[in-house]
Design a protein around this nucleic acid. Structure first.
Length: 646
RNA sequence: GCCUCCUUAGCUCAGUGGUAGAGCAGCUCACUCGUAAUGAGCAGGUCGUGGGUCCAACUCCCAUGGGAGGCUCCA
């Protein structure tokens, strides 16, 4: 007999060799039906594997990521089984579970392609195979045996993976006729895979290396119930409706034109208006926080970027240089504001008493991004950063970091980004030659970031080896409608530029010292920030920011004169107001303006004219009753004050 | 840049070899209306562009522009 300890501390005795699944059944058959994998003595395991010793056991139900992982990983194997039966000779790369679903990278063979039209066929075959309820069988073999098996099969991708594994036991999992190299864990069989959808195709370089073969990546998702798949598809569809590219077009915020060039956004009046409002707001906040505003040109002499080191590192991947016709001077489109800011620093002498200097600019930069990378407003070739550089003494580093984290937290809160993630990127200590700067400086900077984040109660993850070559950084990421993460805010320590630009300040010891530089952005870029804001709000912007705050809806033309009086009154009181005086019925006007996400609709008919009032309707909430125009203005001002405190 | 797919009216989309169609939006007219779609009429496209095959191409083929989803990249 063996003793199994459950997460609640209770202990039960079982026959040696019982499986986790059998344990689940003994607790409750209902539980067993919703369990997909188990953690035995801290090790993630198949439900069907026997337990031979006393153990702690946690059974993973669907809501646990571990359960979904096993479910989707087994689904990837099911898809592979289907693919192998449909495309004999197909070769397999890797096929993991991901956040939502799974994929498998395959090589269909020379001259063969899998296209979108094949997806339903694959899906149907998966359904047939799943219905067989075949067991998924775990098998331990030696490295040599595994190598022989996949060599015989001609699966060179698998043999490459095996050759890199440690000697010792290698686990294989067999489902039907398909055997895969795999660590597991897996479902006991395919009986629980009830709903299957093969979603999409993509190219993916083998092992993420662009010099190697382009595999075909097939994405899919599965669920234990059809209803869950239906709900998932509805959710995806809802997310698509929030896509900033779609809403941006609908609300006439921005556009792209092939004539202007890909990745070069055009801000339409309403979008430009909003962007300006964000800029004004940020400028006010920055001034309160001790920043000074500067302004620099859109181009700079190539020597500037040679000094900064950007030319050497990115020159080949930049827009081609611009040359003057007479003198042949060479300029670059500005890819960064920092070199310019360094020269601003150098334009005047600095005492240690002046520091920190917080120099900010809404600077438009131009970067050559690969065409396949461009994406709406989130990845463009021309964008405006809310850029700033802190020039400080080494002893001020941590406080400066804290002030920036505080600023980011403040702005994100106002923007409603409550679910951002923060990542600290440190250098890879085993690869020091990739980075510039002394060990001492790196350690100091990394410690300052970690401590500052801790003192601001910021939950962070740490990524080793993700630092920039010139210093560690802290990035703030927010998700878009379909779950992709975009970096908005960033804080980066830089020891490189102060050196290269020979920045100095006079210390209390009457000696010249080198300041430390911190690059930081909060919005990241105006473009990306607006994009994420659109997707997070579905276009229902906060009142202070939205292009049009109110629309007046006269019930008929008879009330147009009074309505226009109100229109002027509100606009003169800084309420951004429009009038919809089309000869349409009131229901139609309400519908159209609700769809335009106008926060307040003011209905005006005979009653309102007689009593000198407006009838207020809040978007999404319906009729709020009548009030005097003055009261409406207070209502709006109060709401804005709650949003941004003015 | 690479892989797969898409590209028809301002927007969303039908149209599988016989020289283009709907809904919404727009314009005109009528209606003058009370909280999410009033009715009628009109107008709008060299089917992204350039080649080719064919008696005939929106439709098939090639090239190219643009877009989507990924991969690689992202100072």
């Amino acid at each position: 007999m063996i003793r199994i300890t459950f997460p609640d501390g209770s202990v039960r005795e079982y026959q040696k060799g019982i499986s986790s699944y059998e344990v689940a059944v003994s607790v409750s058959p209902r539980l067993a039906a919703d369990v997909y994998s188990a953690t035995v003595n801290g090790e993630l395991r198949d439900l069907s594997r026997p337990i031979d010793t006393d153990a702690t056991l946690k059974l993973h139900k669907w809501d646990d990521p571990e359960a979904k992982h096993a479910f989707w990983h087994s689904s990837a194997h099911l898809m592979a089984e289907a693919l192998e039966s449909l495309y004999p000779g197909i070769k397999f790369g890797i096929g993991p579970a991901i956040e939502s679903g799974f994929y498998y990278d395959v090589d269909p063979g020379e001259g063969k392609v899998i296209t979108d039209a094949d997806l339903p066929v694959i899906e149907d075959r998966m359904k047939e195979l799943a219905a067989k309820n075949s067991p998924i069988v775990r098998n331990e073999v030696s490295k040599k045996e595994a190598m022989e098996l996949f060599t015989k099969k001609g699966d060179e991708y698998k043999t490459e993976l095996i050759s890199e594994l440690e000697d010792g036991t290698i686990t294989l999992y067999r489902l039907g006729n398909f055997t895969d190299l795999c660590r597991g864990p897996h479902l006991p069989d395919t009986s629980s895979i009830k709903a299957i959808r093969v979603l999409s195709l993509a190219g993916a370089y083998w092992r993420g290396d662009e010099k190697r073969k382009m595999m075909t990546r097939i994405y899919g998702i599965t669920f234990p119930k059809q209803k869950m798949l239906d709900e998932y598809m509805v959710m995806i569809e809802e997310a698509r409706k929030r896509d900033h590219r779609r809403i941006g077009k609908e609300l006439e915020l921005f556009a792209f034109s092939p004539k202007v060039g890909m990745g070069l956004p055009l801000w339409l009046p309403k979008g430009a208006d909003m962007k300006q409002r964000l800029t004004d707001f940020m400028t006010r906040v920055l001034k309160e926080r001790g920043y000074v505003m500067v302004s620099t040109p859109h181009i700079g002499n190539v020597e500037l970027y040679k000094t900064s080191g950007h030319f050497e590192k990115y020159g080949a991947d930049s827009f081609r240089p611009i040359t003057t016709p007479q003198e042949g001077e060479v300029f670059m489109l500005k890819p960064m504001n920092c070199p310019h800011h360094c020269e601003i620093y150098n334009a005047t002498p600095h005492s240690y008493r002046d520091l920190p200097i917080r120099m900010a600019e809404f600077g438009t930069v131009y970067r050559y991004e690969q065409s396949g990378e461009l994406h709406g407003l989130t990845r463009v070739r021309s964008f405006t950063q809310d850029d700033a550089h802190h020039f400080c003494r080494p002893d001020q580093l941590k406080d400066e970091f804290k002030s920036i984290i505080d600023l980011v937290q403040y702005i994100f809160k106002i923007a409603g980004f409550n679910e951002f993630t923060a990542q600290i990127s440190l250098r890879d200590p085993s690869n020091k030659e990739k980075y510039i700067g002394s060990d001492e400086n790196w350690e100091k900077a990394e410690r300052a970031i970690i401590e500052a984040a801790g003192e601001k109660n910021l939950t962070t993850s740490i990524a080793i080896g993700e630092a920039a070559f010139y210093g560690p950084k802290l990035d703030f990421m927010v998700r878009d409608a379909i779950g992709r993460r975009w970096q908005l805010g960033t804080i980066q320590v830089d020891y490189n530029l102060p050196e290269r630009f020979e920045l100095t300040y006079m210390g209390s010891d009457n000696q010249k010292h080198r300041p430390v530089m911190i690059h930081r952005a909060v919005f990241g870029s105006m473009e990306r920030f607006v994009a994420v804001l659109i997707e997070n709000t579905a276009g229902k912007f906060p009142l202070w920011l939205t292009p049009d705050q109110a629309v007046i809806l006269p019930i008929s033309e008879k009330f147009n004169d009074y309505s226009k009086t109100i229109l002027n009154f509100l606009n003169n009181s800084d309420i951004r107001t429009l009038i919809d005086d089309r000869s349409e019925k009131i229901g139609k006007k309400i519908r159209d303006n609700e769809l335009k996400r106008i926060p307040y609709l003011l209905v005006i008919g005979e009653k309102e004219v007689e009593s000198g009032t407006v009838s207020v309707r809040r978007q999404g909430e319906g009729d709020k009753g009548v009030m005097k125009p003055d009261e409406f203005i207070s209502l709006i001002k109060d709401e804005i004050s709650k949003e941004i405190g003015i």
